[in-house]
Design a protein around this nucleic acid. Structure first.
Length: 322
RNA sequence: GGGUGCGUCGCAUAGCGGCAAUUGCUCCAGACUGUAAAUUUGGCGCCCUCCGGGCUUCGCAGGUUCGAGUCCUGCCGCACCCA
């Protein structure tokens, strides 16, 4: 029995479900600090398109925060240049330090975001192999068809080949990349539902709203972002020397706005595409989150607050994980 | 008023007379261990004992044919051209 298991709150949900507002409210109420789990908000200069909260960047990477009206610290926002490669492994390492720092100061870490994989990396304490991305190798392998990559992997690591999605080039390439460096893709250590993170206790709250309402929010939000200068933001990134290709790799609006700015599609087409892409994205997020049965889905703020209160009251019972 | 063309599953498209019918999108469901706003799989007329079988579809109504989304006639609707 661990009398004082450290507690972490997770607020998740698809895009446009209102995560940020709720996280801030909870942070105020329960003396928390917010850790963004958003694979695009880590980048500086990508504000409107990623829906960052209003605020100002202060300090270095670990103590950096954005303040809003209520002065709640936010971490893992604006930590790297969009030129930098960033990924789950880095996020897990860095966010882990932030969590420790927040807990040491007696506050509640509130992870808030929509990047399911990144959240899971922390919640399940996933271990990533110490193999850094090899750009040269990736560039070479990208040219091969999936069948060939699968055949290569089968030779290198038959075990991984058994479970991998043989049509998914991105994953095939990563698996081969790992094999080239350490011979074999390590066995998965922590599987969701089975091994719990013993360092912390998590309460994962998912923001639930009807598909109709969600799609409606998305449209409104996207249109509002255009008013807030999303197109200029993309143009500025390019003016600062970021290639269209790199910008487009960030997806959604960052993919479609360059199509418009380079004259490939009309403005109206672009707006439609962005809304559509955003909807499809929300759908994928929902699919991801749905399979984690530990997530408690709620829509009413009062209920959320109540659930959090109870969670924070409990002592180290493992049951609180669910 | 005359002429021509077109009406196919939410939208858009394909369809030498043997078709429950092509493809894209949407939509729905799924996968996911260092690109995750990425990448990827499946389903999408209805019903069943879902291997397979049954039923009802391609603007509407008839007709030709063993057999019609495909051919013919009429009607309705839409588009364009001539008046």
């Amino acid at each position: 029995m661990i009398p004082n298991t450290k507690k972490i709150l997770v607020i998740l949900g698809p895009t446009s479900s209102g995560k940020s507002d709720i996280a801030i409210k909870l942070a105020k109420k329960f003396n928390g600090e917010i850790i963004s789990a958003d694979s695009r908000q880590v980048f500086r200069g990508m504000d409107v398109g990623t829906g960052k909260i209003e605020g100002k960047f202060v300090g270095d990477s670990i103590s950096n925060w954005r303040s809003n009206l209520h002065n709640i610290p936010h971490y893992m926002i604006d930590i790297v240049s969009p030129r930098t490669e960033y990924n789950v492994a880095k996020f897990k390492k860095q966010a882990g330090k932030v969590i420790e720092d927040i807990l040491r100061r007696g506050k509640i870490p509130i992870i808030c975001g929509g990047t399911g994989f990144w959240i899971q990396a922390i919640v399940d304490n996933m271990n990533f192999p110490e193999v850094k991305p090899d750009r040269e190798l990736r560039k070479k392998l990208e040219k091969y068809p999936a069948e060939k990559l699968f055949a290569m992997l089968k030779k290198l690591d038959p075990d991984r080949a058994k479970t991998i999605d043989r049509n998914n080039k991105v994953r095939l390439i990563r698996a081969i990349e790992i094999c080239k460096s350490i011979k074999k893709v390590p066995e998965i250590q922590n599987t969701r539902y089975k091994i719990q993170n013993t360092k912390y206790q998590f309460l994962q709250i998912g923001l639930k709203l009807s598909r109709e309402k969600l799609y409606d929010n998305i449209e409104n939000r996207v249109l509002a972002r255009f008013d807030q200068g999303m197109i200029d933001e993309v143009a500025d990134l390019h003016a600062d020397g970021l290639s269209w290709k790199r910008i487009q790799s960030f997806g959604l609006a960052y993919f479609w706005i360059p199509e418009y700015l380079t004259g490939k599609i009309t403005q109206n087409e672009m707006v439609e595409k962005v809304i559509q892409a955003e909807r499809n994205y929300a759908k994928r997020q929902i699919t991801w989150f749905k399979r984690d049965k530990r997530i408690q889905w709620m829509e009413d703020y009062r209920k959320i607050e109540k659930a959090v209160k109870e969670f924070l009251k409990k002592y180290g019972s493992r049951l609180a994980l669910f």
